[in-house]
Every structure is written in C-alpha cells, then in structure tokens.
C-alpha cells in the first residue's frame, strides 16, 4: 500500500517538475527567440521590463490575460474555444514518454526520470504529435474566416505530408536500437549518438520536426504576409496565447525528441545527465531560432515537392540501406 503511495507521489512529483520546467522554458524561449532574432537583425529585442527584459514573459501574460476574449459572431463556438487547448495539451502530452535523465536513486529505489516508460513510446509520440494538428485545423475551421480556413487546410496537408517522412525517418533509429522505448533508444546511444551513425535519418527527421512545429521555413499555416495570422487570425487574448505557448512547448518537446532519438539523450561526459539533456535541448531550440532568422518561407509547391519527392524517397532508401548494413554486420 505505502509502496503504491510512494510510486504515486513520485509520478506526481515528476509531472509537476516537467510541467513547471517545460512551461518555464516555453515562456523564456519566447524571450530568447525575440532577443536572438533581434540581435541577428541588429536590434536589441525586448529589454525594458526588468533587468535585460527578463520579466517580459510575465508582462506578456498579464497583457494577454487582460485582453478581451473575443469569439467571432458566426464562429463554431465550442470548437473555437477548445482548439487552442488542443494545441497546448497535446504538446505537453508528448513529454510523458521523454526520458530526461538517467534513473535516479531515491528512497532506496530506482526512479526512472520519465513519467511513463512506455514500451511503444515512439508510436505514442507519433500518435499524439499528429493530434496537435487538430488544434490548428479546428481553430482555423471554427473561426469562420477565409484566412483561418486556408491556414488550417495548409496545416493539415503539411502535417500529412511530413508525418510520413517523420515516422519513416525513425524506423532506422528503431532498427538500430532494437526497441520502441525511448529509454532504450537513449541507452543504445551510450557510446555513439545516432546522428553520427545515421546522419541522413537525422537530416530528414530534423526537417520534418521543423515542419511539425509550424515554424519558418514551414510556417505556411501562419504565413503572416499572406494569411494575416493563418489559423489564429481570429484569436485574441489568452486563447491566442495558448496557441503561442503551444508552439513553444512544441519547440521544447521536439527539441527533446531530437535529443533523445539522435543526440544521445542524457549521455555525455563530465556533466550530470540532466544538464546534458537540458543543454542539448537548448542547442536544438537555438538551431530552430537561428533557422528562423535565416530562412525565407517555402512556397506551397516547394513544400509539397520537398516532402513527397525528396524526403519520403530518401527516408525509404535510408531504411533499406540501414537494414542492409545492420544485416551485414549481423
């Protein structure tokens, strides 16, 4: 009985920890992104609220919370109201299977630093992450605005084309690790991370992750220049904020996944595993930001061409080659 209580308490503790850390990181990623983008464009970025603008996320939240929560007259009310939640929640859900540190020794028992170590963690991630598009599509559809609708449709078709390559680029990883569990995948990279063993899979996965996060160069669902705000054109206040936070939570989550699948997870010399993990995730996020500062948005046909004519065949060939090599090595 008490054993179960302790397990429950540990799970709760881990949940709270993840929740806090991920939200904190999402909030400060926004700030970091604005600052880094600013510097890359020879500006300072936000630097007025608090020292170095460090209180900016708080100011943003207060602003968003006090704004009017507006629902357009002909909108599909309920869908419109829950869509932002779907985006944020699905992004958070993925974090359940991500191992963010090597198992700890607490109260004389092994505590894996992951909420649930599912033996089909990869499938869970693929399933849940494709649910995230419902937020975009439903939000776009429920707004009853042409811009939102176009954004939603774009989001959907983009997700369909890239989800395929995303899944396929993970097959070599699974073949190399011989497991669907994310913890085992990290364990398999103890000596050498998969990014060095299979750079092609890493490349395809990284591009698909970019597309998955709806960020430049794949931010067609938003496309400020053509679609005003894309799927969130009609949103205001904290509901817009949820979409926004969802995007950054997604960034953290996808950064963690890149870390887990290819960068060796928490493995690393000298530093504690947790720090290594954090460091790698932040590095991936910094890469996202850098890409955003440097690349233009793809045109729609380019996006589709890249997805179907390059990434998909590439990942298929990669699976064959990886399989052949693994077979050859025995």
């Amino acid at each position: 009985m008490s054993d179960m209580l302790v397990t429950l308490a540990l799970i709760l503790g881990k949940l709270l920890f993840i929740f806090g850390v991920v939200l904190f990181m999402a909030a400060y990623l926004v700030l970091a992104e604005r600052k880094i983008l600013g510097r890359m464009q020879l500006r300072y970025g936000p630097n007025r609220v608090g020292p170095f603008g460090l209180m900016q996320p708080l100011a943003d939240v207060i602003k968003l919370l006090t704004k009017e929560d507006f629902v357009p007259a002909r909108a599909d009310k309920w869908l419109f109201l829950i869509a932002p939640g779907i985006t944020a929640v699905t992004a958070l859900l993925v974090f359940a299977v991500i191992p963010f540190g090597s198992p700890l020794e607490i109260f004389g028992r092994q505590v894996p630093l992951v909420v649930v170590d599912l033996n089909i963690g990869v499938l869970y991630f693929l399933g849940v992450s494709s649910m995230a598009v419902y937020g975009v599509v439903l939000g776009g559809w429920a707004s009853n605005s042409k811009y939102s609708l176009l954004g939603g449709v774009r989001g959907l078709s983009q997700m369909v084309s890239y989800e395929l390559s995303l899944g396929l680029s993970l097959v070599p990883v699974i073949m190399m690790a011989r497991s669907f569990s994310l913890t085992d995948i990290v364990m398999a990279q103890q000596s050498i991370p998969f990014v060095l063993l299979n750079p092609v899979a890493f490349g395809v996965f990284f591009i698909c992750v970019l597309a998955e996060s709806n960020r430049i160069p794949f931010d067609l669902p938003e496309a400020e220049n053509e679609l005003v705000g894309g799927f969130h054109t009609e949103y205001s206040g904290m509901r817009f904020g949820l979409f926004f936070v969802g995007e950054y939570i997604n960034m953290v989550v996808l950064g963690s996944l890149v870390t887990v699948f290819f960068l060796g997870g928490w493995n690393g010399p000298w530093l504690p595993p947790l720090l290594w993990f954090l460091f790698k995730v932040l590095a991936v996020c910094a890469m996202f930001i850098w890409i955003r500062a440097s690349m233009p948005r793809l045109r729609y046909d380019q996006l589709m061409n890249l997805g179907w004519k390059i990434l998909l065949p590439l990942s298929l060939v990669n699976i064959l080659v990886t399989g052949a090599v693994l077979l050859g090595l025995g």
Binding site: I36, G38, R39, M40, Q41, L42, R43, Y44
Partner: peptide
C-alpha cells in the same frame, strides 16, 4: 550580425 552592435 549577432555579434555586431545593434543600430537601435
């Protein structure tokens, strides 16, 4: 650009 002084 990131290591240049901003023009702001």
């Amino acid at each position: 650009n990131m290591f240049r002084k901003p023009v702001t």
